[in-house]
Design a protein around this nucleic acid. Structure first.
Lengths: 320, 320
DNA sequence: TGGGAGCATAAGTTCAGCCTATCCTATACT
DNA sequence: AGTATAGGATAGGCTGAACTTATGCTCCCA
């Protein structure tokens, strides 16, 4: 049905050069080889592509049409292959990165920007989603890698055993916090289990477990049913609720870094080390990383280790 | 440099079906064959196109890019090949026809139109030019055939021996004519050599030879230098000049058929049979005519034999 | 009138691509 | 757990497609 594609390549050269010998030379083939390929193509298409005119090849209407189909393809391919071919020297091309929205919107653009100062040939496509959609996108090949909030036990995503490689990137400190007013009115220094569990709470829609975990982490006992006054599927809105004094909620330290600094939001600190949430780099296990990917990841990891970034994730440094 | 094109075809199927076995089945190949082709393509491009995920193939960024290049080509080719392939059953496609303007503008559109009543899949590209540009276009493969005014001895076009096949299509009668007024004032029945050569003449730019030939044809002697009052490169303008009474000029009977009928233009008739100009069908000798071409040419030749067309070319029938 | 240029044809050779068989690993089923 | 299944990779052998050289044909040109 479809003709042999390599013959189309030969045809393209013949048509472009209007000569079999010239095409043969360009293709590093002998003249009969090219001549035969052309004849076979014409046989396949059941249509003469050139009328032989002594020394000249005159394309027929069919030949002209075919060339119009083949020509743009060859041209696209020529430049396309160059950019597809793994860049061995310099990073380039498009990087498709997934991340949780709260984390990504704050940090990723700045890393992309600083990376492009050194490698302006690299472009980015960021996708902010929850963990499980990101995993799906990775599996579908629509992301090169993702940054995921791996608070949950790792194995939980699907049954897949070793599909993903998971490398910890940074720990974000999780804090239970409320507004200054709420703290003074309801807590006022009493960080006891009994006092805390009697108050109001705000929670992310699907992360009620984190609250429970918080109590287990600090008091080694499970909290009974908590009074969730606001259940919401937007972390930004949750933080707003905290600021308004609706109650206590768990959030990442870096997200309320400023507010904790000026005292408008108060973290419930205890003697124990704060609970952490591991942000991990997730990739397809078997995927061979490109130079571009490797370079960017190095950039990301180095950047994450800088004090000004690290501090935002570590409340302790703030208290000093 | 460029990858093997057939591997691209294989890749296209793999990507489209997201499976090697499926692609193998569609291509009527074994699974290892397809698997190997893909590996070789990846080696050629020095870039992995899929990451192997157990049962799944997940395209990499490179794979996605490549597919975006290959996909439109395959689609274009699929439909393109159908129309390129010589239609064995019905005429279709585009016919590129050349003709002299005077002849073509009057007759060709009507033949194209009537042909399309039976074969609406056929489209036309008409090119009106003088004989020698038409020959050049034929040689360059930009016309499928041409109708040419072969008044001149055939061999004159370039030195080419048998490049063209020349088949007479119709004879157009050439007449020397002037306006009714001019005839009554200057000729008034005196068709003698001496009288005629003393009058005023109009001539097409490059066809002065035809006038000379006219005199040789009717009187067997060469005319001396004629008084050319209007030399012009538009035959339409020449006819206008004749109508205005500027003098006598040679034109084709069918172009002034109406005017001769109503007497506003008078042909100089003699006892001898009128001089004729052969309109011939010219093609590349070695070109294998397509079904579409053959069918249209039959249509054209049959149409040309119809009385209502034939009469326009033959002044004698008018006189009856 | 012979030489050169361009394409077609003939015949021999080689290697790319295909096949079968087997292996490997993850998943689905019992 | 044990088995079956399904998708893909690997190994090895074979066939034919595509390449080569040599030659023929035709036109063009000096």
């Amino acid at each position: 049905m479809l003709p042999d594609f390599n013959r189309l390549k030969v045809f393209h050269h013949i048509y472009a050069l209007n000569s079999i010998v010239a095409a043969a030379h360009k293709l590093h083939l002998s003249q009969p080889a090219v001549s035969q390929q052309l004849q076979k193509l014409e046989a396949e298409l059941k249509a003469p592509l050139f009328t032989r005119l002594h020394k000249k090849l005159v394309p027929t209407a069919a030949g002209t049409r075919l060339f119009q189909i083949v020509k743009p393809f060859v041209e696209n391919l020529q430049e396309g292959v160059e950019s597809i071919r793994q860049p061995l020297d310099r990073p380039s091309g498009n990087l498709r990165i997934g991340a949780p929205k709260e984390f990504g919107k704050e940090f990723l653009p700045q890393f992309c920007h600083s990376f492009r100062e050194n490698f302006p040939e690299v472009t980015f496509a960021l996708k902010f989603e929850e963990a499980s959609p990101l995993m799906a996108l990775l599996q579908a090949g629509e992301l090169d890698f993702a940054l995921v909030d791996v608070f949950q036990s790792k194995g939980q995503f699907l049954g897949n055993p070793d599909i993903f490689s998971i490398d910890p990137l940074i720990k974000e400190e999780l804090v239970l916090a409320c507004s200054e007013k709420y703290y003074q009115r309801e807590i006022n220094g009493d960080h006891s289990f009994q006092n805390l569990i009697s108050k109001d709470f705000l929670s992310d829609e699907d992360d009620l477990a984190i609250l429970m975990h918080w109590f287990r982490h600090y008091f080694n006992k499970s909290a009974p049913k908590l009074n969730i006054v606001l259940m919401i599927n937007s972390h930004e809105a949750l933080i707003s609720g905290i600021k308004l004094g609706m109650g206590m909620g768990i959030t990442s330290a870096h997200l309320v870094w400023t507010e904790i600094g000026n005292g408008s939001i108060v973290p419930i600190v205890t003697s124990k080390k704060n609970m952490v949430n591991r942000i991990s780099l997730i990739q397809l296990q078997d995927k061979i990383p490109t130079l571009t990917e490797k370079t960017f990841l190095t950039h990301l990891q180095q950047g994450m280790r800088k004090p000004e970034v690290l501090n935002k994730f570590d409340l302790a440094s703030r208290r000093v």
